[in-house]
Write a protein that binds this DNA or RNA. Structure first.
Lengths: 243, 243
DNA sequence: ATCTTATTGTATCATTTTGTTACAATAGTA
DNA sequence: TACTATTGTAACAAAATGATACAATAAGAT
């Protein structure tokens, strides 16, 4: 849990939500040749957390994840996938939540539903950095992008969740051809290669990379991009989903 | 939910369990050149279900899955992994559970905890068919192996769960080198190839398969196996986990 | 205009991996 | 002792990947 108690006034006892179940979303973006994730910050507590939420008893768990993603970015039709369930009992840590509530002048009873043990379903999303509009929820002060190698200490096991999300992304990058979701609609081959190199954290061979990607037959060439650089202008490519 | 209400007398209201959360385990075995899964059967109802259970509030979710696996097979130290969370609200179907209870002379109230909506964490396990001892739980009549292409209609979405588990197994087979877990300690190259062919559902080229597997350097040759066949005796191999 | 420079797109060849065929070794049976 | 089916592996072909090279070209410098 973290920012997930929107409507807590309307659900003082957690009614209307599936009990003990939370969603945590690792929302990846790519900017300045860096992978970034969306984090919420809580004023006066120095706490940072992943966007998350609870599951209404009228919605699917996957729907709840899409709702969280939409609420924090304004985006729909985004690549979003489960990657792990975090269910260790050692996750149960009421301190950060109490701190957040204390700053807001609330002292919850020890049996408050938000202080119970939660199992969290981890999701990761790949969004176009330029299209997302980071939006804090009702109890956080801001929602911002943080570089992956520049992360603050996060509450609970959220650093671990991000680590596992990244590992999943790395493992799935070639298999599922999902990288494009992190770029704008049109991109150069150089953009794509930088993205892959950043995610996989290793250099790729330019000629081989280009040959491989084009050989997949999933890109169409749209135009040339004049970068202003003193060199040949690269082509722009676009992902074509179906044939 | 399905067979997961052991100790229901001791937990008439589901106390001691994480609410609304279940485990479903797809336990794979390999025998007679066929992939098999363990299923529970419920007498006089014609119902079949995956082994499953609930999570004690004193244990990790992964621990609960290991416990389920141990209770149904007697095995520990088994390959076991999460693969998906089944959390659609459409899963909520009280009919089969009521039928099972009815046969046992119980008519639960509509607000019985077992009749509430459950979110289920899907696990898949790979076990040595010869070592597992299928064991029914307290409310099922038997626990048996069923061939994957010979499955009965299962309760709720359990057929879907198996389908998804198989897809995960197929996708991970080469990546994680987990196939050996389905064989006995010593096996021939032919055994291993049959296993791969069965899981992937396609023919593999014998010479290339053998070269590839041996090239991984993860097998040691132990002895020869006299099969009684009128031909050269194959070697036995064994998986070596660490170097 | 022409020269210079950096980057792109692609061709070419080398290397590695995988697909295919072939064949010697051999444990039974006839 | 010959025959047969299967195993282990070599040998070669084809495909994929790694590495290098080079023509094309957009802009700034001359």
């Amino acid at each position: 849990m973290s920012n997930k108690f929107r409507n807590q006034e309307a659900n003082a006892h957690g009614h209307g939500y599936l009990p003990g179940l939370a969603i945590d979303a690792v929302i990846f973006g790519f900017h300045d040749n860096q992978l970034k994730v969306l984090l919420l910050t809580y004023k006066n507590t120095g706490l940072f957390a992943l966007p998350g939420g609870f599951v209404h008893d009228t919605e699917d768990v996957n729907e709840a994840a899409r709702r969280v993603l939409f609420d924090r970015t304004g985006l729909t039709n985004i690549f979003l996938d489960q990657f792990y369930v975090f269910g260790d009992k050692s996750r149960h840590d009421t301190a950060p939540l109490k701190a957040i509530m204390a700053v807001r002048g609330v002292t919850p009873p020890d049996d408050h539903w938000l202080l119970k043990r939660f199992v969290s379903v981890g999701y990761y999303a790949l969004v176009d950095f330029t299209k997302a509009i980071p939006t804090p929820d009702s109890i956080s002060d801001s929602c911002d992008w943080f570089g992956l190698d520049n992360l603050p200490e996060l509450m609970q096991d959220h650093n671990l969740i991000i680590k596992k999300a990244l590992e999943t992304l790395q493992a799935n990058l070639d298999q599922k051809l999902i990288g494009f979701n992190l770029l704008t609609d049109d991109f150069t081959m150089g953009d794509l290669q930088s993205l892959y190199e950043t995610i996989l954290n290793k250099k790729l061979i330019r000629a081989a990379f280009q040959r491989k990607i084009l050989g997949l037959g999933i890109l169409e060439r749209t135009a040339k991009k004049w970068t202003g650089g003193a060199h040949k202008a690269p082509y722009l490519y676009r992902f074509i989903s179906e044939k």
